[in-house]
Design a protein around this nucleic acid. Structure first.
Lengths: 146, 146
DNA sequence: CTCGATCGTTGGCGGGGCCAACAAGTGGGT
DNA sequence: ACCCACTTGTTGGCCCCGCCAACGATCGAG
């Protein structure tokens, strides 16, 4: 195990690795989204809407893992761009009902492609089988951490 | 391939997965470091110093992937805690020479353990072989992206 | 009707990554 | 010896992300 070969200079071990890889991933994703004037929150929210249908902002936050306050800002931005519609809930005056517009759905599809390319770029040096294995492991880890 | 089984509700695919996993990793690492009153930058800088020895702040930034301005703040914090020493370079009046103190080295070892535990927690659901494979893949990805 | 919970909204905090500008200093070319 | 391009440390700022506190309005159970 080379206890003499590279004594103290192997500071760059697994914990370090982890941080570096996640940083890379974050960077690639953010760049890709930034190039189409979007942010991670936009995708979270649109994806949640597309998957579960219209919902109140609080529900949206819970679905997408966003804070209520961040949902406000994100819905504002998406509504400004016409990707999302916010209207009061007739049955509960506290709530707003947020729904996707056709344009919003198209935008989500676009973001899907863009993110797919980012991931393709990130995982470029891995074979198809390796990527599959990596994705599987990440799924396991995610499920484990709820 | 189940084109009818789960049509549009599989929004949570690989690109999404990626972000979630990196977020989890980031969270665990930040929590672990925060518990000992440290931040990622501290580890970056101490690790770079431990690995390559004393250096100017600009060099430190290049080694650890930190911006020069962030190096300033981080060295300030580490110096306040006595983990690092900053003295002028006699050979180049522009430069400071930053070096680790014994206390700093001990702190780095501590951070190593803490981060190791964080990683252990993150990868808990994976077998030893799987972790090895995961680490290998991440290394490949990192090397590919320079 | 009252009380606790929920909702949308505003405002704030800290980490993280990055960039621009600046004065001081350095080194190469001529 | 002089100029010029470059480097260095430092300050200050920007945006994203994740989170938390507080508020007035509203709802629902008792």
């Amino acid at each position: 195990m080379e206890t003499s070969g590279a004594p103290r200079r192997l500071r760059g071990t697994a914990s370090w690795l982890l941080g570096q890889a996640t940083t890379q991933a974050h960077r690639l994703v953010s760049e890709a989204l930034g190039a189409v004037d979007a942010r991670r929150y936009h995708y979270s929210l649109l994806a949640a809407l597309d998957e579960f249908g219209p919902a109140s902002q609080a529900d949206l936050g819970r679905r997408g893992g966003l804070d209520r306050s961040d949902v406000v800002a994100t819905v504002n931005e998406l509504a400004d761009k016409g990707f999302v519609e916010r209207r009061p809930d007739p049955g509960d005056k506290r709530r707003n009902i947020v729904s996707v517009t056709p344009s919003g759905t198209a935008h989500l599809r676009h973001l899907d492609r863009v993110l797919g390319q980012a991931q393709e770029a990130l995982l470029a040096p891995l074979s198809a089988a390796e990527r599959e294995e990596l994705v599987r492991m990440l799924n396991v880890v995610l499920e484990h951490h709820g």
